[in-house]
């Protein structure tokens, strides 16, 4: 059993006397694809910030393997529009990598044609690919993506998911992705982590989808998704 890349151990986070995170424990192993889901305000972004070390947990511990290199793309990235900066200059800002890797990642993420465009002129999809490129330049073995497809249209979402999938398959890179889109979550994740302050369920998609807590949280979207599954509420879950 290889060492986990990153593990959260009994994380508690309080904010304004509310429990944002309540005893959250899980780990991500090399090469896994974990999707983090949960309703708005469930503490998903806070959990990401705790994992990245941007927020310190009120209690509990995050263990990072010595080998872990994290590439991160934030939610709602808006570059300062007053700075005239091109995509290529943004990618090279405060980064250390050789030209060969740079060219390879540019090709992988398909942004050759926009390298010299002003950063502020990019569309939502282009900007996400540029952020992903920046994250990949670090040669990460763990990519953390906070709602990367939030502002993309359906087509853009499909293309972006496909890109993430390619990266996951070809670069031996674990992925932790925050998502709202249950269809895609189910299809490509090794594991699904369903969060509502506490971990409602964590496991393989077909296990999670039968979980009653999960069903309660995503009731609206479930009718559609569960056409092929049988499921029964075995208890009431009061959130």
């Amino acid at each position: 059993m290889s060492e986990a890349l990153i593990s959260a151990e009994n994380i508690y986070l309080e904010h304004n006397e509310k429990n944002v995170l309540d005893n959250v424990s899980f780990k991500i192993n090399t090469g896994e694809f974990v999707t983090l889901i949960g309703p708005n305000g469930a503490g998903k972004s806070s959990l990401i910030e705790v994992l990245l070390g941007l927020l310190s947990a009120t209690n509990g511990k995050v263990r990072r393997s010595k080998k872990v290199v994290i590439g991160y793309t934030p939610q709602n990235f808006i570059p300062n529009p007053f700075i005239p900066i091109s995509v290529i200059n943004f990618l090279k800002l405060d980064g250390k990598f050789n030209q060969h890797w740079f060219d390879e990642v540019i090709e992988l993420c398909g942004i050759e044609s926009i390298l010299h465009n002003p950063l502020k002129s990019l569309s939502g999809g282009e900007l996400q690919r540029v952020l992903l490129t920046r994250a990949m330049l670090k040669k990460p073995n763990l990519l953390i993506l906070d709602e990367p497809v939030q502002n993309l249209d359906i087509n853009g979402q499909m293309l972006f998911y496909r890109l993430i999938e390619t990266i996951h398959e070809t670069q031996n890179c674990a992925v932790l992705m925050v998502s709202h889109d249950l269809h895609h979550v189910m299809k490509r994740s090794n594991k699904v982590l369903c969060l509502f302050h506490h971990i409602c369920c964590f496991g393989q998609p077909d296990t999670v989808i039968r979980d009653s807590q999960f069903n309660d949280l995503f009731a609206d979207q479930m009718d559609d998704l569960l056409a092929t599954y049988e499921h029964h509420h075995n208890h009431c879950h009061d959130h």
Partner: peptide, 17 residues
Amino acid sequence: WDKLLFVTLNACLAKAE
């Protein structure tokens, strides 16, 4: 230079890095 510019461009991402 790089750090001052990065912080100005987007402080959240700079902090995360």
